[in-house]
């Protein structure tokens, strides 16, 4: 249950590129072929390990808000990482990357790690954006790049974990101010000396049923 660090992520990009599916694949290891609005997984969490350290990822899917950029903007400041997603079978989603990136850069803290993701790599026959184009865009804007498939799960783990590793390294380098929660990073309870103690006896509850996440 306890973690060394907690990172907040957001997933952004045009409607239909597969943001919700990526989140679901990462947290629940399943794929939802038909878009089911009733599921409404707009928030997900998972524990990962980097360098032998437990790291909790809290991920916000900006579902249904693509049309309202200004709402999405409210999430930038508090996020440590962002997955910027386009759909390799729809060029216009690639073309919109610049505006997404501008928005993100303008409203986020300067250290936010942005991972560029070309999703739906399983649909090779319908590909409209070459992998090299994604790589070039990433290089040009200083992003990490990866092609994924939320359907086959290819590279999905890697995308989330590599982003975390990048953040983790920045912390080691002392780039991030980890005491400012507005950066989307929290230090785990037992790692922080200033952690406010809980009321009553410090009896650790949930010891039995641990790994729910």
């Amino acid at each position: 249950m306890s973690y060394a660090y907690l990172f907040k992520y957001i997933i952004i990009g045009d409607t239909g590129v597969g943001k919700s599916c990526l989140l679901l694949q990462f947290t629940d290891k399943r794929f939802q072929p038909v878009h089911d609005l009733t599921i409404g997984v707009e928030f997900g969490a998972r524990m990962i390990t980097i360098d032998g350290k437990q790291i909790k990822l809290q991920i916000w899917d900006t579902a249904g808000q693509e049309a309202f950029r200004s709402i999405t903007r409210s999430y930038y400041r508090g996020a440590a990482g962002a997955l910027l997603v386009y759909d390799i079978t729809r060029r216009e989603t690639f073309n919109h990357l610049t505006t997404w990136l501008e928005d993100a850069r303008q409203h986020s803290n300067s250290n936010m790690v942005i991972m560029l993701i070309g999703n739906k790599s399983d649909l090779e026959s319908r590909r409209e954006v070459k992998k090299e184009e994604g790589e070039a865009f990433a290089r040009e804007h200083g992003l990490v790049f990866m092609e994924t498939s939320a359907k086959t799960a290819a590279n999905v783990e890697e995308a989330f974990i590599n982003t975390a590793r990048e953040i983790y390294e920045k912390i080691q380098e002392g780039v991030f101010d980890i005491n400012n929660e507005a950066n989307g990073i929290k230090i785990g309870p037992q790692h922080s000396p200033t952690n406010p103690s809980l009321p009553g006896t410090g009896g650790q509850g949930g010891s039995q049923g641990g790994g729910c996440c």
Partner: peptide, 10 residues
């Protein structure tokens, strides 16, 4: 549900 999920995960 999104926030309930967050509350639980947090």
């Amino acid at each position: 549900t999104s926030n309930i999920n967050f509350f639980k995960e947090g």
